[in-house]
Simulated assay, not measured.
Amino acid sequence: MRLRTDIFVSALMRRVFARGDFAAVEAKGAEEAGAVFVRQVFRNGTESLHAPAPQSFFEEDDDGRRLFETRLERADADAVAEAIARERRFDGDLWVVSIEADDLSGLIDFAGAKPQDDGFFRR
């Protein structure tokens, strides 16, 4: 069973702040099951966009964790904003979380990567 989106986002924000980084919810979607997009902002002004990974990355015994894939990497802020706008036209219930950090390790799990062993967001 997957954690509600509002709880996932709240916990993500707390972890970001605990590391000394900054995060903000740019768009709030469906509280129970909205898709989460992470907008990673770098110091040099470039951004990366991380989106929910396709279902093909999940195993049959899905443990409920959220996996992400990188859609845009170190792109211009306008390109990231345009990609988010396209996604919002398709799915108005999505969340957008902006995180100002050079490294997202320990915050979100990426498809194909070994899961973090900190027990966070695990059942």
Rank of each mutant, 00 (worst) to 15 (best):
R43A: 15
A83D: 04
Q55H: 05
G64M: 06
A35T: 07
F68Q: 00
R65Q: 14
A77I: 04
A35L: 12
I84L: 15
D76H: 13
A79Q: 09
T70M: 11
S48L: 06
A85L: 10
F42C: 07
S48Y: 05
R74T: 08
E73Y: 10
E82G: 02
E60C: 06
D63G: 07
R65T: 15
G45I: 09
V80E: 07
D76W: 05
I84C: 06
Q40K: 05
D61S: 13
T70K: 07
A85F: 04
S48I: 03
R66T: 06
E82H: 05
F37N: 05
N44K: 09
F42H: 12
E59R: 15
D78P: 00
R43E: 14
N44C: 09
T46E: 06
V80N: 07
P52W: 03
V38L: 14
R65P: 05
E59M: 13
V38I: 15
V80A: 14
E73N: 09
A85T: 13
A33Q: 11
A53I: 00
A35R: 14
R43C: 03
E47Y: 02
F57T: 13
N44P: 07
V41M: 14
F68P: 01
A81K: 11
E82D: 10
F42E: 11
A79D: 12
A51Q: 15
N44G: 09
A77H: 07
V36F: 01
R71Q: 14
E59Y: 08
E69K: 01
L67N: 02
A83Y: 02
R86Y: 08
E59G: 15
S56R: 14
A81N: 14
G64I: 01
D63A: 05
D78Q: 11
A33I: 03
D63I: 02
N44Y: 05
S48G: 07
D78E: 14
V38Q: 01
Q55M: 04
V36W: 03
A79F: 00
T46Y: 00
D76K: 09
P52Y: 04
S48A: 12
A33G: 12
A53N: 03
A77L: 04
A85I: 04
D63P: 03
E73L: 13
E69L: 01
F68R: 01
R74K: 15
F37E: 00
E82K: 09
D62C: 13
N44E: 15
E73C: 06
F37D: 01
I84Q: 09
A33T: 11
D61Y: 05
A77W: 02
E69D: 02
L72A: 02
